Amino acid sequence: MTLSNDVYWNRMVPELSVTDFSVSLNFYTQILGFSIMVRRRDPDFAYINLGEAQLMLEQYSSDAWNTAELIKPFGRGVNFQIDVDDIDVIYRRVMRNNVTLYRELKDSHYDIGNHIACQREFLLQDPDGYLLRFSQYIE
């Protein structure tokens, strides 16, 4: 969906409640390399992207759309797969910043019918525990 200035807005974008907005925004932008598309204050909010992957971050508030008490790690039962063009660039950034990995960089193979696909991937948790899976399709 294109709304303005030829910016592409995905039709489904996860919005993550975060406990310390400045820490989370720094993690996503300075460590992982996301860019800020939209920034708002009160409550703190950012719409961010890494290539075509988009997320929203919002400072946790008791007035927000909370369906239950948030207990760390947040996002239990879900991982966010973020497809990238060059996983090594992001992996080096993560290692340079001493981020603990949930799962090391490895190649995973998937049977997709008429052939086996290879996906290079690693997983980490953001400051609130959301599980992020960075992946690159390997021919």
Results as ranks from 00 to 15, higher is better:
Met1Tyr: 11
Thr2Leu: 12
Leu3Gly: 01
Leu3Thr: 08
Ser4Arg: 09
Ser4Thr: 13
Ser4Cys: 04
Asn5Phe: 13
Val7Lys: 14
Tyr8Met: 11
Trp9Leu: 15
Asn10Thr: 06
Asn10Glu: 02
Asn10Phe: 05
Arg11Asn: 14
Met12His: 08
Met12Thr: 09
Val13Trp: 03
Glu15Cys: 12
Glu15Asn: 14
Glu15Pro: 02
Glu15Trp: 00
Leu16Glu: 07
Leu16Asp: 04
Val18Asp: 07
Asp20Glu: 10
Phe21Asn: 08
Leu25Asn: 03
Asn26Tyr: 12
Asn26Lys: 14
Asn26Cys: 06
Asn26Leu: 07
Phe27Val: 00
Thr29Leu: 01
Thr29Ile: 05
Ile31Gln: 08
Ile31Val: 07
Ile31Ala: 02
Gly33Phe: 09
Phe34Arg: 10
Ser35Ile: 02
Arg40Met: 04
Arg40Val: 00
Asp42Pro: 00
Pro43Met: 05
Pro43Phe: 01
Asp44Ala: 06
Asp44Pro: 01
Asp44Met: 02
Phe45Pro: 12
Ala46Asp: 12
Tyr47Ala: 02
Tyr47Asn: 05
Ile48Thr: 01
Ile48Ala: 08
Ile48Glu: 13
Asn49Tyr: 09
Ala53Lys: 01
Met56Tyr: 13
Met56Phe: 04
Met56Leu: 02
Glu58Trp: 07
Tyr60Val: 07
Ser61Gln: 14
Ser62Pro: 07
Ser62Glu: 14
Ser62Asp: 11
Asp63Trp: 10
Ala64Tyr: 06
Ala64Gly: 11
Ala64Ser: 12
Ala68Gln: 11
Ile71Tyr: 00
Ile71Ala: 08
Lys72Cys: 04
Pro73Phe: 07
Pro73Ser: 08
Gly77Ser: 04
Asn79Ala: 15
Phe80Arg: 03
Phe80Ile: 15
Asp83Asn: 10
Asp83Glu: 08
Asp83Phe: 13
Val84Cys: 11
Asp85Arg: 13
Asp85Ala: 15
Asp86Gly: 10
Asp86Arg: 15
Ile87Met: 13
Ile90Ala: 12
Ile90Phe: 06
Tyr91Ser: 09
Arg92Trp: 05
Arg93Gln: 14
Val94Asn: 09
Met95Ser: 07
Met95Cys: 14
Arg96Met: 10
Asn97Asp: 02
Asn97Arg: 14
Val99Trp: 13
Val99His: 09
Val99Tyr: 15
Thr100His: 13
Thr100Lys: 13
Tyr102Ser: 09
Tyr102Cys: 06
Arg103Ser: 12
Glu104Leu: 10
Leu105Thr: 08
Leu105Trp: 12
Asp107Trp: 01
Ser108Thr: 15
His109Phe: 14
Asp111Leu: 13
Ile112Arg: 01
Ile112Phe: 03
Ile112Met: 07
Gly113Ala: 02
Gly113Met: 05
Asn114Glu: 12
Asn114Gln: 04
His115Pro: 01
His115Ala: 11
Ile116Val: 15
Ala117Arg: 09
Ala117Thr: 08
Cys118Leu: 06
Arg120Met: 03
Phe122Met: 06
Phe122His: 08
Phe122Glu: 10
Leu123Ala: 08
Leu123Pro: 00
Leu123Glu: 07
Leu124Ile: 12
Gln125Met: 14
Gln125Lys: 08
Asp126Met: 07
Pro127Gly: 02
Pro127Phe: 09
Asp128Arg: 03
Gly129Leu: 01
Tyr130Cys: 03
Tyr130Thr: 04
Arg133Pro: 01
Arg133Gly: 09
Ser135Tyr: 03
Tyr137Gly: 12
Tyr137Asn: 14
Tyr137Gln: 10
Ile138Asp: 03
Ile138Pro: 05
Ile138Glu: 09
Ile138Gly: 06
Glu139Phe: 12
